[in-house]
């Protein structure tokens, strides 16, 4: 596969969910292992190791998502008004519409997964680990 970040690579539509999946798997495995293997009591910067790591992972994930959203926005903004071209027979205009589609899809994915990341990360501040 070519550069996954390229504007016309359809992979760009699924980058945010892939990042979210990795994040989700990481925090889940971390907490499960911490509880079963008994290192849940360790601390990091004065916080429990699990909440601290989850918060860091959440922030990192959010940063990546925001970056992806920014990238998608920078591609979406110039072609915002080209939606009609999806019905154009002109290959060049059709290409613009395709770019718009991928950029918008990437943007919405990033936005949605920012929410999903927040939902997953927030309870770490509230709920006991085990």
């Amino acid at each position: 596969m070519a550069n996954p970040l390229a504007a016309d690579n359809p992979i760009s539509i699924v980058l945010a969910p892939i990042v979210w999946s990795v994040y989700f798997l990481f925090v889940y495995v971390l907490n499960s292992v911490a509880c079963t293997k008994g290192f849940v009591g360790l601390t990091l910067f004065g916080f429990g190791i699990v909440p601290a790591t989850v918060v860091i992972a959440t922030l990192v994930t959010l940063a990546i998502m925001v970056w992806l959203a920014g990238l998608a926005w920078s591609r979406f903004a110039p072609v915002r008004d080209t939606d009609d071209h999806v019905h154009s027979a002109d290959p060049e205009l059709a290409r613009l519409a395709r770019r718009r589609f991928m950029a918008l899809a990437g943007l919405l994915q990033a936005g949605l997964h920012i929410l999903a990341t927040l939902y997953v990360g927030l309870p770490a501040l509230l709920v006991p680990e085990c």
Binding site: G111, L118, Y119, L122, P123, V127
Partner: peptide, 24 residues
């Protein structure tokens, strides 16, 4: 479809955590 459920569910996520703690 996005903002309203997004905010409602954020509130619900926090509420769920708090109710969960209250019955623990």
């Amino acid at each position: 479809g996005l903002v309203f459920p997004g905010v409602t569910l954020l509130v619900l996520t926090v509420a769920t955590a708090m109710v969960g703690n209250a019955v623990d």
